[in-house]
C-alpha cells in the first residue's frame, strides 16, 4: 500500500538513527514542558484556546447571523478543533528550520528533526482535544456508532496532510523568507473556505464543487460525518487527500535532506 510506505518513508532517515529519534521525542517533551511551565495553569491552556475560539464563533455565527444547522455547538466545536490542529501544525512547523538558526550553526542536527517536533507537538495537543470532543459529543446526546473507527483513518490523513505542508514550508522558508507571510495569509483565507463555521449544504450548488476541492473542507466534513451523523466518511475523498499529501511530502523530505548542510549557511 503506497500510503503506508510513504508514512514510513517520512521519518525514515531519522528513524534509522536511534539517536535522532530519541532527540525528537525528548525535544517534543521539552517543548511541551516549556510551553506549560511558563504559565500558571499550564496544560489547561490546551483547552482554553479552542474554547475561546469556539465561543467567539458561536456568538458571531450562531447568535448574530443565526446560522441554521442542527447541533450547532458540536458542529462548531469539531470545526474549530480540527482547524486549529491544522493551522498550528502548518504555521508552527513552517518556521522551524529558520527558527533553529543559532542551533544549526553550532552543531549538526538533521533538519528533518525540527518540523517533526512541531508536528508531533501539535498532534499531542489535538489528541487531548479530540478525546474531550468525543466525551462532549456523548454527553451532548450523540451516540457511538461503528463509524467511529473511521476516526483513526481521518486523523491519519490529516496528520499526513498538515505534516506534508509543514515539511514543505520548513524546507522552503529558509530560502524564501517572504513565504512566511504568505503562510499566515493563506491560513486565514483557507479557514473561511473550509466550512469551519458554516455547513457546505448552505452553499449554492455551483460553489460546492469548488468547495470540496479544499482538502481541509473534506477533512472537517469527515469528522462531522462520524461524530454528529454517525455515518461513514467519504473514503474516496480522504484517499485523494492522502495522495495529494504524498505528492507534497516526498519533494519536501527530499529538499530537507538534499540541503541538510546548506541551511546553516542560509539562515545565518
Amino acid at each position: 500500500m503506497p500510503l503506508a510506505s510513504i508514512i514510513c518513508a517520512v521519518p525514515g532517515p531519522i528513524m534509522r538513527d536511534k539517536h535522532y529519534f530519541d532527540l525528537i521525542l525528548y525535544k517534543t517533551y521539552a517543548d511541551m514542558r516549556a510551553e506549560t511551565a511558563r504559565t500558571y495553569i499550564g496544560y489547561l491552556w490546551w483547552l482554553i484556546d479552542p474554547l475561546v475560539a469556539m465561543a467567539t464563533y458561536y456568538v458571531v455565527f450562531g447568535l448574530f447571523l443565526q446560522t441554521k444547522t442542527e447541533d450547532f455547538i458540536p458542529f462548531l466545536l469539531i470545526g474549530v478543533a480540527v482547524w486549529q490542529w491544522f493551522a498550528t501544525t502548518v504555521s508552527k512547523g513552517a518556521n522551524t528550520v529558520r527558527a533553529a538558526a543559532s542551533l544549526i550553526s553550532q552543531v549538526y542536527i538533521p533538519k528533518l528533526v525540527f518540523p517533526t517536533v512541531a508536528i508531533l507537538l501539535a498532534f499531542l495537543h489535538f489528541v487531548v482535544v479530540l478525546l474531550l470532543l468525543i466525551a462532549f459529543c456523548t454527553f451532548y446526546g450523540l451516540s457511538f456508532s461503528p463509524s467511529y473507527t473511521a476516526l483513526l483513518v481521518i486523523v491519519a490523513v490529516q496528520f499526513l496532510f498538515s505534516g506534508s505542508l509543514a515539511y514543505l514550508l520548513a524546507a522552503l522558508i529558509p530560502f524564501i523568507p517572504d513565504l512566511r507571510n504568505f503562510v499566515d495569509y493563506g491560513l486565514r483565507m483557507l479557514m473561511f473556505l473550509s466550512g469551519v463555521f458554516y455547513p457546505a449544504a448552505q452553499l449554492p450548488e455551483r460553489v460546492q464543487t469548488w468547495f470540496y476541492l479544499n482538502p481541509m473542507a473534506n477533512l472537517i466534513e469527515s469528522y462531522r460525518d462520524v461524530l454528529i451523523h454517525q455515518r461513514w466518511p467519504d473514503f474516496g475523498a480522504l484517499g485523494l487527500v492522502a495522495l495529494l499529501s504524498c505528492a507534497i511530502v516526498v519533494p519536501a523530505i527530499y529538499l530537507l535532506t538534499r540541503y541538510d548542510r546548506v541551511y546553516p549557511k542560509v539562515v545565518d
Binding site: H19, D22, L23, Y26, K27, A30, D31, R33, A34, A37, R38, L103, Q106, V107, I109
Partner: peptide, 23 residues
C-alpha cells in the same frame, strides 16, 4: 546549546547533551 528558559537544569542538561550528540 538549545537551552530553554522554563526547563530545569536537569532537563536542559539532557536536551543540550543530546543535541551535542550524546546518547
Amino acid at each position: 546549546l538549545g537551552f530553554l528558559p522554563y526547563l530545569t537544569g536537569r532537563e536542559n542538561a539532557m536536551l543540550s547533551g543530546m543535541m551535542l550528540g550524546l546518547t
